[in-house]
């Protein structure tokens, strides 16, 4: 009986691999078909991975405490939507969003100030670059002590984590305009603010969006890890750490699924926004 699962999974894996192999080697003339195939291949690969996971779990009857099969995780997700939603609200809607907006906003403003004062740029940028590489999540216990167990302490961690990437990237972006463009603005007799708003900020947008995309992942990580240090009894990080302790691994996977969904959706949203704002950038121009 158990062999059936393994063999089925393996056969499915081989078949999808063969299909993908054939698809990847062919070139389609129609552009929409090619785009569809480019999406189909990773989807098939992902499906094959899931089937293999399911087959191995059932075939070798892996204890569910170690690795629950995808079907079990899915059942857990659908049966505990209310808990997942409450956790999502606590961690994402409150801590992540508040922290993200404050961190990115203050990083942006700091970048404009730093850009205005060359002395600060020389002094602060190397430090900002260094801090961006430091394990800032370690600040979490201190923030929990300062701002209490509820979401403000998590938002504070997110603020610190997102501030420096935003600062460093925005300063780099503000320096991205060429001499010719700036000279042109000069001949138009435009003042500092006109140059900033009409030329330098739009030119900095690819850098700013890069920081926003990095930060969207960092913010989620910061909020979840900060919850390991103490929370009210709700939140994604809290759920993960307690359910791991109770060996409810399927619930942990469900929570991770939610985190993954939230992470990739916010990333996708930012990417769409970037496309709309920086339509002029070479990488988005239609060929």
């Amino acid at each position: 009986m158990s062999m059936v699962f393994i063999v089925t999974a393996l056969v499915f894996w081989i078949v999808t691999w063969a299909i993908n192999n054939a698809l990847a080697k062919r070139r389609f003339k129609d552009r929409t078909v090619q785009a569809g195939v480019d999406i189909l291949i990773p989807v098939l690969f992902g499906a094959a991975l899931l089937v293999l996971w399911e087959g191995i779990c059932r075939g070798f009857s892996v204890p569910t405490v170690l690795l629950p099969p995808p079907s079990m995780i899915w059942a857990r997700i659908t049966s505990s939507l209310d808990i997942l939603w409450a956790d999502f609200q606590q961690t994402y809607m409150k801590a992540v969003l508040a922290g993200f907006v404050m961190g990115c906003g203050s990083g942006f403003i700091a970048a404009i100030i730093v850009d205005r004062i060359p002395f600060l740029r020389k002094g602060l940028l190397p430090i900002g670059n260094l801090v961006a590489a430091l394990p800032i999540v370690g600040m979490a216990p201190i923030m929990v002590m300062w701002f209490g167990f509820d979401w403000p302490s998590k938002a504070a961690v997110v603020v610190i984590m997102t501030f420096f990437p935003m600062l460093v990237n925005t300063v780099a972006g503000l320096g991205a305009t060429g001499h010719i463009e700036r000279d042109l603005m000069h001949t138009y007799a435009s003042n500092y603010w006109q140059t900033l708003i009409k030329l330098r900020l739009p030119a900095a947008m690819p850098f700013i969006f890069n920081a926003l995309k990095i930060n969207s992942t960092l913010a989620l990580i910061g909020a979840i890890v900060a919850e390991f240090f103490g929370t009210p009894i709700v939140g994604m990080g809290f759920r993960i750490s307690t359910e791991v302790g109770r060996m409810n691994v399927d619930m942990v996977w469900a929570e991770i699924f939610v985190a993954a969904l939230a992470g990739s959706l916010s990333y996708g949203l930012l990417a769409l926004l970037e496309r709309a704002v920086t339509f002029w950038h070479p990488s988005y121009r239609s060929k």
């Binding site: 291949i41 990773p42 098939l44 690969f45 992942t217 990580i221 979840i224 994604m236």
Partner: peptide, 22 residues
């Protein structure tokens, strides 16, 4: 390239650190 690369890029958007305790 075609089957793995999109997943590698997607996985960068996921808070992987969350699975550390597990």
């Amino acid at each position: 390239d075609k089957s793995l690369m999109p997943w590698i890029i997607t996985s960068q958007t996921i808070p992987i650190l969350a699975i550390a305790p597990m």
